[in-house]
Design a protein around this nucleic acid. Sequence first.
DNA 1: GCAAGGTC
Length: 613
Amino acid sequence: MKVIIAEKPSVGRELAKVFGATTRKDGYIEGKGYSFTWAFGHLLQLAPPQEYGYIGWRKEHLPMLPAKFKLSIRKVKTKDGFVEDPGVRKQLDIIKKLFDEATEIIVATDAGREGELIFRYIYYYLKCKKPFKRLWISSQTDEAIKDGFRNLKPGTDYDTLFNSAHARSQSDWLVGMNATQALSLSAGNRSVLSLGRVQTPTLAMICARFLENKNFVPQTFYQIAIQLDKDGQLFKAISVANFNTQPEAQAVFDKVQDVASGFATGGNITAVEAKPRKEPPPLLHDLSSLQQEGNKKNGFTADQTLNLLQNLYESKLVSYPRTGSRYIGDDVFATVPQLISTLTDHQLFGNQATFLQTATLNKRSVNAKKVTDHHAVLITGVKPYNLSKDHQAIYDMVAGRMLEAFHQECVKEITKITIESGSVFIANGTVIRSAGWRSVFNEVEDEKKDEENPALPKVKVGELLPIVNKALLEKQTKPKALYNEASLLKALETSGKEIEDEELRYAMKDSGLGTPATRAAIIETLLTREYIKREKRSLVPTQKGLAVYEVVKDKKIAQAELTGQWEKRLEEIRTGASVEEFKAEICEYTKTITQELLLAGIGISAQFAEAAV
DNA sequence: GCAAGGTC
């Protein structure tokens, strides 16, 4: 008998279905000479410090550098502290039984670094010696699955991938566990002051933005607004120049030839420009873009959106949620017309679904090369009923975005009129000529400028119009906004873009800071530690968070670039570079950061005592 | 008590 092990139940069941295996057992499915089983993500993790004899938090233990790492069963937090997850233990027992009976194992965990690690940790923990082959597919359609099984790879082809995964895992443990204990002990051991490759740069981003915002000195400047009349249609124009002082602005203001100053037609049209602008439809949603939208539209936290989406996934209403891709392959695209047809009676956008049934679908979101482990989030075509308000909101975001993504482009006409009257003024106007994808939600754009006219009248160069109103506006420059969940998620995704080094940036491109599956948890960790708090919709640091930031802000552990550097090395390991060299460097860095944090302690203990008040 | 990674 052959055993096929997937990363999660949904994939295991899908594979069984393709093979026609139907006998449901506890924790696996049997049939056609195969057993299909699954993990629930990582079942095993690197054992905590106490399992290497580092009992209690003590400076003498630091740095903790286990000679050989151990694995332990994933724990859950209960009221009696951390205990082995009983569900995980049970599934591991099932996997062990199946592995023992197996003639061969086929590894069908997700095609990536963590997928490889999930299987290998199980395999080594169970001390299994059976031969294994690797299924490597990037799409879950029947055809892709069958094709993958016809082309199984030798398990050892992925040894270097496992090496890179294991190095990632150990490095995070070494740096995170040691830095956390060092800082906590240093600061007087009053509370857990956690540090890590991902959470600390994230905290640093929030703190830096907060301080920049708080210390921002607004500059006053002046503008002049005028209102013109074209055959009864009024429109607004703003001075091209900004003025730093009131008298400067006043002098120009006085020269405006408005009706009240005795000029019947003092506005001279010197230029008219009108050009169409085409806006392609937005891409389908990945988890991060959905979390951003959930935050903007409904005020959901990243964690809430993930949970709601997970529920919809478990009810088979949407596809796999923790995806980082905003594309689908051609095979999935072939099912889109059918999915659209399930929405024709939707009360919000049923008419748009009906329209799309006969329209040519836009293929901007179709690109098999940009589909990684999982494709973009789609509805499944299963009809929802009786969803809670929040579940419905998320479902509609997925369904509505699908309609938008395959809809036509939106065509706008951008008009710019230049007027002279003592000084130069510009009137901007935007008219939607063809709404296209924007007709799905029919919402006003969020970045509408307040000085923008919806539509401008037809005017010609040389025309003279009456200026019926003028105003001197006093304005202030604004600081960058504080982070909220939406803007923070976006910043985590693209932190690579702010990195100068080309090669480092490339290594960051696909990873950013954290992964789609973990970003919500990172924000929650910072909240749990009381490093940050929610203030209305913003995320702001607490005194404690700022105190941690002050200690680490110039250290490598607080830089997003650290992840980029690691990713570059891990990719080299995947292609065969020495893992020992990298591990040695990580050990060195662990010693350095631990030492620095322990030394920092003398000065900072008092500061944390204050922050605790 | 602690990381980051995955998922019910």
